[in-house]
Write a protein that binds this DNA or RNA. Sequence first.
DNA 1: CTGAATCCACCAAGATACTG
DNA 2: CAGTATCTTGGTGGATTCAG
Lengths: 137, 137
Amino acid sequence: MSGTHKPVPRIDTSHEHCRAIAETLDRIGDKWTVLAVGVLEQGPLRYNEVRRSISGISQRMLTLTLKNLERDGLVTRTMYATIPPRVDYELTELGRNLLVPLRSLREWAVRHRPAMLAARKRFADKGRSARFGQRAL
Amino acid sequence: MSGTHKPVPRIDTSHEHCRAIAETLDRIGDKWTVLAVGVLEQGPLRYNEVRRSISGISQRMLTLTLKNLERDGLVTRTMYATIPPRVDYELTELGRNLLVPLRSLREWAVRHRPAMLAARKRFADKGRSARFGQRAL
DNA sequence: CTGAATCCACCAAGATACTG
DNA sequence: CAGTATCTTGGTGGATTCAG
C-alpha cells in the first residue's frame, strides 16, 4: 500500500465526478422514481399497493417507472400465476443502497429548503418592486 | 367551527419525506445545475469561465441555470461595471451545503453505478434473446 | 464580455381505452 | 389485477440572432 494512507484526499480532480452525479440524477431525477423507491423502502408491495401509495401517478407512469427500476437492478419483480394475478415489487440490495444518498438529500431538503424558498420569494419580490419603480404593489 | 376543526393537518406523514426529496430533485435534477455547482465548488468564476468549464452547455442554458441558482440563493452574482463587463458567480453558504448530499450521490454513483449499468445490459440482452426465441443473436 | 429574445424539436408524462 | 396501446401536450433545452 505504498505510502499513501488516504486514497481520496482530493475531491474534484476534474469534473468527471460531476458528470457521474449528473448522470445519476438524470436517471433518478424523473418525476416518480424516488417516490417509488421511497414507498418500497418498508418492504415489498404489490402493483396496486404501490399505485395507491403514490397518489397522482398514472398506470402508465407507474408501469414505466417500475420497469426501469427493474431493468437497472434496483427492484425485483415477482409474478405469481394466480387468479387474479399478483406481482410483487421489492427493493434489491442495490436499490436499498440508493436510500443512503436519498436520505442525505432529504436531510438537505429538510434543513435548507426553507431558506431556498425564502430566497426565491425575496428574489421575486425584488423583481416585482424593480418592475414597478420601487413602489410596493 | 362545527365539527371540523382541522381540515387535514397530516397529508402523508410517512411519504411527505419522499415528496421533499422529489421536489428537491425536481429543482436540481435538470441537465446543468449540478455541473454548475460542481465547477463553482473550487471558488468564484466568471461567466465565460463557467461556460468553458462545462463543455457542451449553451449560452442560453448557462444563463438560465445561473439565474435560477441566484434566485434560490445558492450562488451570488457580482457585476463589475468595467469594460468589458465582468460578472463573477460564487457559491453561497446554502450552495456549499448542497455539496454534502451531492457528494453522497457521487459516492453512490462511483460505487454502485457500474452494477446498475451491468444490470441494465443483462436486462437488454435478456429481452433480445426472448424476442428471438432464446437464440443468441 | 455577458447576456436577452426568438424559434423550434424532442420527449416525458397525462388521458383514455383496451387486454390477458 | 396488472398491465398495453395510442394519442396528445407542456415544458426543457438547443440553435441562432440581437443588444448593452
